[in-house]
Design a binder for these strands. Structure first.
Lengths: 195, 195
DNA sequence: TTAGCCATGTAACCGGTTACATGATTTT
DNA sequence: AAAATCATGTAACCGGTTACATGGCTAA
């Protein structure tokens, strides 16, 4: 149940229409909580029904007509409640790690190329984040209001840094692996706890 | 579509029953691809229907009776295909970062305690991984077959290290934040690209 | 013989994904 | 006038989550 709160946050930062929200989710908030326009429209409907947001009465809504939403006090209260409430971290799901684990069993054939591609993608994302940091958080102390935003961006930068390093290391290991696939060499299964 | 491949990998490492798989998903593979027993039974049924696995004919299956599965050649081929196929990284979803972003708007009240809790959880996970590394990958060169497994574990260790560091940093920043919540101080919304 | 655990399921729900529909506005 | 784009939706599906059901085995 996080999408409604992502939307409330975005609307508090700036009242927007559905499509504007969609565009903002493509950058910014979407860096750590993505959403399609279909999701957003569905959720806007619910939030309005619950009295958490309302359409600005300025223009009459019709199909194909812009509808701009703002957050109501009840919505702000709900967001504050949710932000403060304890939440367990969700167990991570990472396909790439799963594929490496599978490769340990069926061979690494073809995997290396995709690792390279991922490395390139993460490098690009990293430099995009660093560009944003240069532009929005120049050296020197942030204003108190910007501290939290900078903190979030820092998480993005450090995560992408981790992935580029790890993928680089992985590719080095691949280069040292003997031959192609250990396909036909079943061996005693290792203890089940190893990663 | 990753759960069936996670199961195929686990079954190739060692033929198992549904509940055994469930237990193995609680450690090991579950560190980066979790699954409940309901998911696993459903998926085992599908995989059997597709001819990717089969129940070992040893014992007759009845309700409440163990059923052990093994991977068929078609299943191994499918896993190899999937492992080698290019896949785009899924956009990350991280609730904690979303909550920080929300806190920048509605205030940090109550958030700090949960950050501390998360820090503690990540520290515990980190030392669990490090324990596994000490036990299964003692210093010195890994055997080629263990390289990939060690690589996966390394990703887990480095990720948890990142989180503990970032959370520590975040808590330091919180300590410096003025007062409690900037609740009643709306300001010009910052540019929408920052993090 | 009752309680508790082992083991395998079924069913309902819910959020995210994909495909498609429709009206309004702008461009060619 | 046709085509492209903007903007708001509907509908179907699918994987993950939660709650519940059922049979067999074991220990108090």
């Amino acid at each position: 149940m996080s999408l409604p709160h992502a939307i409330l946050t975005a609307l508090l930062e700036k009242p927007s229409s559905g499509l504007e929200l969609t565009r903002r989710f493509d950058k910014s908030i979407g860096y750590f909580w993505s959403a399609t326009h279909q999701q957003i429209y569905r959720e806007l409907g619910r939030l309005e029904g619950e009295g958490h947001i309302r359409a600005l009465p300025a223009e009459q809504p019709a199909r194909g007509q812009k509808k701009r939403y703002e957050v109501l006090p009840a919505g702000r209260a709900e967001l504050a409640r949710w932000t403060a409430a304890a939440q367990d971290p969700k167990p991570q799901r990472d396909v790439l790690l799963l594929r490496l684990r599978a490769a340990a069993v069926v061979g690494t054939e073809g995997l290396e190329a995709d690792l390279r591609r991922h490395l390139e993608l993460h490098r690009r994302q990293l430099s995009e984040y660093e560009e944003i940091e240069r532009r929005d958080f120049p050296p020197g102390r942030d204003a108190p209001q910007d501290r939290l935003r900078h903190l979030v961006l820092r998480a993005g930068i450090d995560l992408e840094t981790f992935w580029t390093r790890w993928l680089t290391h992985a590719l080095e290991e691949f280069a040292e692996l003997p031959g192609a696939a250990p396909e036909a060499q079943p061996r005693e299964p290792a203890p089940d706890t190893s990663g």
